[in-house]
Amino acid sequence: MVKPTEEAVVTQQEPLRKLAEVRDLNFYYGRTQALKNINMPIYEKKVTALIGPSGCGKTTLLRCFNRMHDLYPGNRYEGQILLGVDQPRNLLEMDPIEVRMQIGMVFQKPNPFPKSIYENIAYGLRVRGIKDRALLDEVVERSLRNAALWDEVKDRLKEPGTSLSGGQQQRLCIARALATDPEIILFDEPTSALDPIATVSIENLIVELKEQVTILIVTHNLQQAIRVSQFTAFMYLGELVEYNDTMSIFTKPVEQKTADYVSGRFG
């Protein structure tokens, strides 16, 4: 784990780079508008937390990033989510497969495939037609190491992924997302189905991972947002109420709604 002092130094030295930017985003489930005119940046190799009460649209916003809404009929996007540092492209107009090749996702409940641990991770490469065994081996090991799972499972890569404990399954899902070396990984309340110890290990992992990948995380747990994120967006009723660096959101929020929420007065 990176020590806080070192981290602060790194933050000061490296300039912030926008990896993605949400512009005037509206989203509709059929006729119901779930997101209203969202604007926010996503900074490279930082953790951005999305917080807000249930039904505020934070998961909806997260799922826009890898076009999960395309899977269900009647959903509609308006606006732009620009992806890329040099030549940004609107990912809402890209091929969803291409988007998902660059933006991975970890879900609320661990959802490993009922296949071996190895195949769970290799699958992201297999769908791209990669069959080279040495390459797959390398990726599986690297991903498992990055997900802090290698030492626990290296002797049983052939066992089913579903035989692992809940926390291990979630780290397996993180490894699966890491395998394809995405630009961004989306975490949708990744610890809400886990016990406190597994939660700590996932949180530590997120903190480490931001050295290599940009992270967007939806969380109900405000402490978790403070612990893992550098930037926080507070959402309410489909609108982005306030976006700022995490410290400011929690210590000197501008909006009254934000102040009420982070101090536990509602939600």
């Binding site: 791209r128 990669i130 390459l135 390398e138 990726v139 690297r142 070396d181 290599q212």
Partner: peptide
């Protein structure tokens, strides 16, 4: 971070 050039070729080209 991926360093293997073979991998970069398939993942990021």
């Amino acid at each position: 971070m991926v360093r293997n050039p073979k991998l970069i070729a398939v993942l990021h080209n």
